[in-house]
């Protein structure tokens, strides 16, 4: 390695600070996992808040949950799972550098992500109609538990933060897609697709927890 980086001939996609492709790829993957650690703890603040208030006010949470639409939430869960599959397939194809297939799977993933957001939009607007947005439009019908606003603050906080991550994800996806179309990625250099996949799956996992915690409680409201 006696030579200066710029003078060496240099595999496609290898950044100057790395010695070789495996080192670069390993760094990318570890970097993404480090970032996901921060994401786990970031959402963890929400989940801790949820845990504590849920254990103090179970009935307010049952009540709040019964206002949510299990069907829409369930469909969205399925949508995200399918999108995780297509994302995993895109990563899979990236290992052989098959540009066309990568692009197809990325498009599918993007469409599913948008579908999720559209459904989420309809859910949100129905909450607005029913006056269930704490602070902004808050006039629930009939009698309600005093802590109902806690539940809906958490609902909007958690799903909103999740949706924000979806939006960022779709933005990143677009970028990866363009790069793929330009032929940047090869069988050797595909780390960006791979680590974007990690991000996408992580966002899916958050939803896997949000769905039962927020939507499915309502079925027990009567007890």
């Amino acid at each position: 390695m006696a030579d200066h980086a710029a003078h060496r001939d240099h595999p496609h996609g290898l950044a100057h600070q790395f010695e070789d492709m495996p080192q670069q790829k390993e760094s990318a993957v570890i970097g993404m996992w480090s970032f996901l650690i921060t994401e786990i703890l970031f959402f963890g603040g929400f989940f801790a808040t949820y845990l504590i208030y849920r254990s103090y006010y179970p009935y307010a949470f049952f009540e709040g949950s019964s206002h949510l639409d299990i069907l829409l939430g369930g469909i969205n869960t399925a949508v995200l799972i399918v999108s995780s599959l297509t994302m995993a397939m895109a990563v899979h194809e990236s290992h052989s550098g098959n540009k066309k297939r990568i692009m197809v799977y990325l498009i599918l993933t993007g469409i599913l992500g948008l579908t999720f957001l559209v459904i989420k939009y309809f859910e949100y607007s129905s909450k607005v109609e029913h006056g269930l947005v704490p602070g902004l439009v808050w006039h629930p019908h009939g009698e309600y538990s005093p802590q109902l606003a806690l539940f809906f603050s958490l609902y909007f906080g958690m799903t909103g933060m999740h949706a924000l991550h979806m939006v960022v994800g779709i933005g990143l996806l677009t970028w990866v897609f363009v790069k793929t179309a330009q032929g940047t990625y090869t069988a050797e250099y595909n780390a960006p697709i791979e680590i974007f996949g990690l991000y996408w799956h992580f966002v899916d996992i958050v939803w896997i927890f949000l769905f039962p915690l927020l939507y499915l409680l309502g079925t027990q409201g009567g007890h």
Binding site: T49, P134, L150
Partner: peptide, 11 residues
Amino acid sequence: FGFGFFDPNLG
């Protein structure tokens, strides 16, 4: 926004 997380009025 007036969300409630720490507000004693909302529990």
